[in-house]
């Protein structure tokens, strides 16, 4: 019976019509793999780090600048002895030199006369660090000017004083060797040494500084009398360029003498 069923099943299977051959579907082309997205990494953490800063200690760096040999400083900065020992280590200074081009003249019995003055100045400036509202410092200046054909001046001044907020007050001794020969104006002075004092008051406001002062000097040699001088000037900062103007009017027994100058000075500025 089982055999008969099996035969019947095979026979039926053999009689089933064969399915027509279907055309083979073309194999789908493999899709190109997508380009990997460019990787992006977030690194943000801000500017702050645990590294040291070159400017954290800027004030200390300022103290390290301009340090001078104490002996040199003592010789060049009168008034230093006024400072207490603790302040000595905070005194800083610097030297500089600059050419001078002046207009000079005289006013005497013969009228007025003017000429050109050429020269140079050597400066030493000093100051005390660590002072805010009141700043103490000074300047020594040796100035040599030849008034072409009309004499010369060799002046040594040294002033010291404080800046009190926007106002500076400086005073100190002056020694001068000079000779004047303004023949046309009738002002002639024999070569002589004078000694005295000078006082200056300065005021600074933004890029402009003005100063005015007076000098009184008595003749020591050359038969010179007592002379007084009115001083004035100003500095205007134009970026890194400083325009410096100065004026001096001296009253002497022989007549009046004056100088006027305009200078340019480069100074680093931000």
């Amino acid at each position: 019976m089982l055999i008969a069923l099996l035969c019947l099943s095979l026979s039926a299977a053999a009689q089933e019509p064969e399915a027509p051959d279907e055309p083979e579907a073309p194999e789908p082309e493999p899709e190109p793999e997508p380009e990997p997205e460019p990787r992006t990494f977030d690194l943000s953490g801000g500017l702050d780090d645990d590294a040291g800063s070159a400017l954290d200690d800027f004030d200390a760096a300022v103290e390290d600048s301009g340090e001078l040999d104490p002996e040199v400083l003592s010789a060049l900065a009168p008034g230093l002895s006024l400072l207490e020992g603790g302040k000595m280590s905070l005194v800083r200074g610097r030297f500089s030199a600059r050419p001078l081009l002046l207009v000079a003249g005289a006013q005497g019995d013969g009228g007025g006369q003017a000429g050109v003055g050429l020269g140079a100045a050597g400066l030493h400036r000093w100051w005390v660090l660590g002072m805010d509202t009141v700043q103490l410092g000074g300047e020594s200046r040796l100035e040599a000017v030849g008034n072409l054909g009309n004499g010369y001046q060799l002046t040594l001044t040294s002033v010291v004083g404080p800046w009190l907020g926007p106002v500076g007050v400086h005073a100190g001794p002056v020694v001068r060797l000079d000779r004047a020969d303004w023949e046309q104006a009738g002002v002639q002075q024999a070569a002589g040494v004078l000694a005295g004092g000078r006082g200056l008051v300065s005021a600074a406001a933004g890029p402009v500084s003005l100063y005015g002062g007076a000098e009184l000097a008595a003749g020591l040699t050359g038969g010179r009398g007592t002379e007084w001088t009115a001083l004035g000037g100003g500095v205007v900062e134009l970026g890194m360029l400083q325009v410096i103007g100065r004026f001096g009017w001296r009253e002497a027994p022989e007549g009046a003498l004056w100088t006027a100058g305009l200078g340019l000075h480069f100074q680093p500025r931000l």
Partner: peptide, 13 residues
């Protein structure tokens, strides 16, 4: 940028 300008007779530090 930091710049220290020393005092002079004509200007404060």
């Amino acid at each position: 940028l930091a710049l220290y300008l020393p005092m002079t007779v004509f200007s404060r530090a």
